[in-house]
Design a protein around this nucleic acid. Structure first.
Lengths: 156, 156
DNA sequence: TATTGTTATACTCTATAACTATA
DNA sequence: TATAGTTATAGAGTATAACAATA
């Protein structure tokens, strides 16, 4: 059995020809790689994305972040709470019910590390995309979640 | 506030220009849509993918499926257990420790429904991909998880 | 020694319901 | 009535460690 790997007949894998399956595997692989980059920074993916949203939009509310990033309000609460406990984010009441979020100075330092990790990750990712696909790859991905599903998508 | 939506200034969203972020959002959106298609069939995504792997490779073992689909051995046990309890999959000892998996007749019927859902989903997905991207989209996605990461990918 | 299947366990993300206080 | 934030809870996917049986 010294060569069990070489002699093992390859399994049929009809899943690999399906764009939907490939999309999920690609996303999972890239998320795993990106999360490894975030480990030394002490962040998880959702925390990093929320920090970036606040850095881009100082004073934004939790609900607006949730709508933009597709994170439930209920899940934003403990997430922002952790960032506040770490001294990275400050809440300031906008009106009686809304909190405007801003980065503290420690938060600004943290976002710099996050952006470096993001840049490295995006470079690594695009390097694996075939050259002839690079110009259209981002638009194709964005079309899948930004465009409304075609009419009667569930009946297509 | 009758027009709060119209007058709400659009937030800056630097995430939307990142292929890695777009990949995750696209995958999440497509998974949500596909899972909705599977609800009436009574399956979850991982169950459907395992059924397809067995249909393509009768007699395959749990460990081989796990390696092909990137599912941990430990997580295959309860997953296959559920399919067996529903009478869709049969286990037959290959040797003292391996079980070869095959579909029962009920499993064959189930896989037909799964394949119909998959076909509808893939059609709906590709319809949203810009025409000029379709020829290269699948290869780009597969490159992201099938190709080994570039050397020193975490330092790139 | 390595592999298969298994159990137990834990973490992350996600989803819903319900509550308060405010608009 | 609708919205913001919160709490509690549950489901699904994923990850590691450990074990017995077998190769």
């Amino acid at each position: 059995m010294f060569n069990s790997i070489l002699y093992k007949k390859p399994m049929k894998d009809s899943l690999a020809t399906l764009p939907g399956y490939a999309l999920r595997r690609a996303s999972a692989a890239m998320m795993a790689e990106f999360n490894q980059r975030l480990v030394p920074l002490g962040f998880r993916f959702t925390e990093a994305s929320v920090l970036m949203a606040i850095a881009d939009n100082p004073g934004i509310t939790q609900s607006d972040i949730g709508r933009a990033l597709d994170i439930q309000r209920a899940n934003m609460a403990p997430l922002v709470g952790r960032l506040e406990d770490r001294g990275l984010v400050a809440r300031a009441r906008v009106d009686g019910r809304s909190h405007g979020l801003t980065l503290t100075s420690a938060g600004v330092q943290a976002i710099n590390g996050v952006r470096a990790a993001v840049d490295a990750h995006e470079t690594s990712l695009m390097a694996r995309v075939p050259v002839q696909a690079r110009a259209v790859f981002l638009d194709a991905l964005n079309a899948l979640w930004q465009e409304p599903a075609a009419q009667s998508s569930l009946a297509a």
